[in-house]
Design a protein around this nucleic acid. Sequence first.
DNA 1: CAATTCACTCAACGGCTGTTGACTCAACGA
DNA 2: TCGTTGAGTCAACAGCCGTTGAGTGAATTG
Lengths: 184, 184
Amino acid sequence: MEGTPTSRAERRRRTEERILSAARAIFAERGFQRTTIRAVAAAAEVDPALVMQYFGSKQDLFDQAVRIPSIPPLDGELEPVEELLGRIGMKMGPLPEATLAMMRSMLTHPDAAEEVRGKLDGQVAHLADAIGTGDAELRAALMVSTMLGVTIAHQLLGLTALRGASPERIAEALRPSLRALADG
Amino acid sequence: MEGTPTSRAERRRRTEERILSAARAIFAERGFQRTTIRAVAAAAEVDPALVMQYFGSKQDLFDQAVRIPSIPPLDGELEPVEELLGRIGMKMGPLPEATLAMMRSMLTHPDAAEEVRGKLDGQVAHLADAIGTGDAELRAALMVSTMLGVTIAHQLLGLTALRGASPERIAEALRPSLRALADG
DNA sequence: CAATTCACTCAACGGCTGTTGACTCAACGA
DNA sequence: TCGTTGAGTCAACAGCCGTTGAGTGAATTG
């Protein structure tokens, strides 16, 4: 009926995306070590060997599945602290699976640890520039660490007191705390 | 020369402690999954089978090595927020290896996750009582999450900006932020 | 001293894992 | 139409892991 609904290139594209999607989900749920090529393949309804053939190794699969689009934080235009405080809510909402996978693995997978550390160091430097005064770097690091801790407690650990709270309420309650760090 | 420097009971006690110590160190450094009975045995200079014989299973070894003395938080006497803020410094200093092992594993080992979640929930409830007003539980949870985040960033991830900072400086910089959460 | 207990070792099993190479067969190009 | 490409499968290998059971020899007990 249709003229080739499944070209070879199309099929390949879709299968690759199915594998990447399954990988993201399972990496986010179980972390790097406990994620199995076989489990990813099963979730993608594909033979395990195909995953290897397409992505080379488990580590390569992790790299490609979990690579974050990495929206550069508006380089050049120095985002003021105020606007960052306004964005808190977004960071509390449902995060991309790639980010969750990274965070899930960062304490037990050295590569993930280095990747996250690098990204956080970048955020710290960016924030410290916007703050400027005295021990800006330390306070910026504490702001980033705070966001990290709340995200972990909320999304990864599921602290009881946070499980029912909406991103907006969390962001609102958190704002004075972060402002106290941003100022002196 | 000496009269029985090594009684049977003594030898056993020391060997057990050697195994537990090695287990704590490796669990803290690599987390549950990546820790090998063989690696623990090697570090304790003992046959892997002996670890099994003494502790039953890897999970049991983890439980016993990582069990925290669990100083009850002075039940009965409601510790005021002020005193807790004073204790921040201690929590930033070198933590017991058992605690580090627990934290290292909490994102990838369900049992560790539940244990940590339970402990943190307890701290939240305790703190919320001391706060009292309005949405005390949410703000208490954010205080605990902040401490968690800073500890992770400092001890487990090694954020560059935090690596050179003394516990006292971190505690001092953090205090206004936590006070903002404790008040309205 | 003889019998027993027990700390400790040795060698192996069975399962799971990442990874590989040979194979099948439908889509493709000439 | 026919040879080639390439998506996808199948079966297996090799290594590591938790765990086990039989064994050894020194400390203990009577």
